[in-house]
C-alpha cells in the first residue's frame, strides 16, 4: 500500500511547523512506521537542526530535483530511529528552484517505499506553500491560540480548500493552561469554533520543546515531557487510534496539582 503524504503548514510563521514535523515523524517512526521528512522551506532550512542531523548533510532537495544526485543519496538516516529519514532543504537557493510538479513527482516515488512522507512547509501563501501542498494527501494546519495566528490560519485553510486539498486538520500548539484558566488565552474549543475544522491535537507550551531543540533530540522521544506526550498522541491519531485529548488541568504534573489543591495555583 502506498504511503501517505502529510503536509504541515501554517499562515503565520514561527507557530511550530518544524517542531511538529520533527516530533510527529519521530513518534511515528518509534511506533515502527517508515517515515521520511522533507524540508520544503528552501533557503531557511531548520528541520535538520531540530532533528539533530545537521552535520550529515551532503545533498539536498534541490540537488535531487535538478538531478545532481539520486534520491537515496540525499536521504539522511536517523541513527536513533532507523525508520526515520530526512531530505534537507537547500540553504543557498530560493523557493523557485522547485516546482509543485517536482514535488508531486518526488512524493510519488517516496510513497512507494515509505508509510509516511511528512512535508515541513514554509509559512505564508507564496510559492513555497504551493510546493508543499501540491503532493499532499492530508494537510495539517498549525496555529497558536493567539489572534493573528488564528486569523492567518483561517486564510490558509481557505486556500487549502481552494486547492482542493481540504479538509485540513488543526494542530493547536503552545496552549498555556494557566492562561486559559484565568480567561486570558483562547481555549481549544474557541479556536475550533472560529476555524470550523477538525482537531488533530493540542500541544501545550512546554520548556522541554526548547531544550530538546537545543540538543537536537525530538521531545516526542522524552517520556517525561507533556509536549512529547501530546505529539505521541497525535501520531497515534494519525494511525487511526482513538486517543482522547489530554486534560488541561493535568498540565503541571503531580506536585503542581497538589499545590493547586492547597490553593497555591501555578
Amino acid at each position: 500500500m502506498p504511503g501517505t503524504v502529510l503536509t504541515i503548514t501554517s499562515g503565520k510563521g514561527g507557530v511550530g511547523k518544524t517542531t511538529a514535523t520533527a516530533n510527529i515523524a519521530a513518534a511515528l517512526a518509534s511506533r515502527g512506521e517508515k517515515v521520511v521528512c522533507l524540508d520544503a522551506d528552501i533557503g531557511l532550512r531548520n528541520l535538520d537542526l531540530v532533528l539533530g542531523l545537521e552535520n550529515r548533510i551532503v545533498y539536498d532537495l534541490v540537488d535531487v530535483v535538478e538531478g545532481r544526485c539520486r534520491l537515496r543519496q540525499a536521504m539522511i538516516r536517523d541513527k536513533r530511529l532507523p525508520n526515520l529519514f530526512l531530505i534537507p532543504a537547500a540553504q543557498t537557493r530560493d523557493k523557485t528552484a522547485v516546482s509543485p510538479t517536482d514535488m508531486v513527482q518526488l512524493c510519488n516515488e517516496l510513497r512507494q517505499d515509505y508509510d509516511w512522507v511528512l512535508i515541513d512547509s514554509p509559512a505564508g501563501i507564496e510559492r513555497g506553500f504551493r510546493n508543499a501542498i501540491a503532493p499532499a494527501d492530508q494537510v495539517l494546519v498549525v496555529t497558536n491560540p493567539e489572534v493573528s495566528a488564528v486569523r492567518d490560519a483561517d486564510r490558509i485553510i481557505g486556500l487549502i480548500e481552494a486547492e482542493e486539498k481540504g479538509p485540513a486538520r488543526l494542530l493547536l500548539n503552545r496552549l498555556n493552561p494557566a492562561l486559559v484558566r484565568e480567561g486570558n488565552m483562547l481555549d481549544a474549543e474557541d479556536v475550533l469554533e472560529l476555524l470550523a475544522i477538525d482537531l488533530l491535537g493540542v500541544v501545550p507550551e512546554d520548556e522541554s520543546v526548547v531544550v530538546s531543540a537545543n540538543r537536537g533530540t525530538p521531545v516526542a522521544l522524552d517520556a517525561n515531557s507533556r509536549a512529547g506526550l501530546a505529539f505521541r498522541n497525535i501520531a497515534r491519531r494519525l494511525l487511526g487510534e482513538d486517543v482522547p485529548l489530554m486534560p488541561l488541568e493535568d498540565s503541571g504534573g503531580l506536585l503542581q496539582r497538589l499545590g493547586r489543591l492547597f490553593g497555591k495555583g501555578d
Binding site: E146, V147, V150, R151, D154, G183, N184, M185
Partner: peptide
C-alpha cells in the same frame, strides 16, 4: 479580578476574531 470577571481577554479575542474572519473569508 477573576471574581469580577472583567478582564477576560480571551472572550474579547474570540469576539473580535469572529467578526474579522467573516469579512476575511
Amino acid at each position: 479580578d477573576r471574581l469580577r470577571g472583567n478582564k477576560n481577554s480571551a472572550r474579547q479575542a474570540k469576539d473580535r476574531l469572529q467578526l474579522v474572519l467573516v469579512h476575511d473569508r
